[in-house]
Simulated scan of single mutants.
Amino acid sequence: MRLGRFIGGAVLAACVSFGALAAPPPGHAGNPVFPGWYADPEAAIFDSAYWIYPTTSLPYAQQNHFDAFSSPDLVHWTKHADVLSMRDIPWAKKALWAPALVKKDGKYYFFFAANDIQNDKEVGGIGVAVADKPDGPFKDLIGKPLIGAFHNGAQPIDQFVFRDDDGTYYMIYGGWKHANIVKLKPDFTGVEPMADGTVFKEITPAPEYVEGPLMFKRNGKYYFMWSEGGWTGPDYSVAYAVGDSVTGPFRRVGKVLQQDPKIATGAGHHSLFHVAKDDSWYIVYHRHPLGDTNGNHRETSIDELHFAADGSILPVKMTRDGVEAKSL
């Protein structure tokens, strides 16, 4: 049992964590970083604060809203409850998950997956909401899914929004072992053709790809990360590839995050914090407590991410202590 941590001046309820029994050293966040079952964390830095927007990891019937968490230092986290709710998305009926957040022109845009559609006859897919503040309240932007159908075999879920150096916003998304990239309209109300006329371009990086894509650029190279394995099982993991353009082709390098039988299992569906002032990187991900076989019991954790001299990502050391405090 991990004791509640002081967050926003109040002690949050304790949560069960079979793999995290000892208190972290002073000045460390400890993993999980906040109590509760939360998964698919989206990491963002807004207005000199760290933000995490996770999936509420409950059975689909109860997965009907999103909470957010903010921190000045990666250690002390404040919960912002119900920043986006199904009641504010007229077309969403079940299963909200996998947030992606972007700040643009003074507005905050919240991309999400809803309804877990299985074919093009069902209503659902990837939506977008907007707010004036990072803690919401967010409201549905267009009254329908932004992407509501299958293209190139990709289930419309698990979106990530990437801003390239020229200011163009792309969305990388897809489940069912297929990944697509689309170019977003500047107002995020739809998608538009890329330079070659393609709208939905498949960029599945490797046969092992399953879901949870993420992209960033470092030293002129595009890094494409994703999750492999089954999200309810112990072998869920994160791998990556590298390419020379936003659309690839990408060369799979290998896994960088996977279970540690001494710490936790099922580590995946991640995001990243990048602190530009000293080029430090942190991986934010969910994992299953040791000994717990309930697939929905996922906790959000943060550990350091490091690069080798050649630009390759070093294997992540999963910890119970978490990261040290770092102010922005």
Rank of each mutant, 00 (worst) to 15 (best):
V242P: 03
Y170T: 14
F250T: 10
K103W: 14
W231L: 15
T247M: 03
F160M: 14
G19D: 06
E228T: 11
E42P: 01
E299T: 01
M1W: 00
G248P: 01
F160A: 13
T204G: 10
A44M: 03
A29P: 04
P186L: 12
V199H: 01
G9E: 12
G9D: 09
D73C: 04
W176P: 01
E299M: 03
L184N: 11
P90E: 05
D165F: 03
Y50V: 04
S327F: 09
V75M: 06
V83R: 07
A309R: 12
K185W: 03
E324P: 06
A10D: 15
V253C: 06
G311F: 03
E202K: 05
G268K: 06
A98S: 10
S312E: 12
D244R: 09
S17T: 12
W281G: 10
P41T: 10
K183P: 11
M1Y: 13
D67C: 06
D82T: 14
L257H: 03
M318T: 15
A22E: 08
G248R: 02
L214G: 15
C15W: 03
K277T: 13
K133V: 00
A14T: 13
T189L: 07
T232H: 13
D120A: 14
V130G: 07
V284N: 08
D165P: 08
D88P: 11
Y50D: 05
Q258T: 13
H269V: 11
K326S: 00
D135S: 10
V161E: 01
D292G: 10
L58E: 12
H286R: 05
I142H: 13
P145W: 00
A39Y: 12
V102Q: 11
G36N: 01
N115Y: 13
A22T: 09
T247D: 11
G8K: 09
I172P: 04
G30P: 06
I117D: 10
F200V: 04
G143N: 14
K121S: 15
V238K: 00
R252G: 01
G291K: 07
V199Q: 05
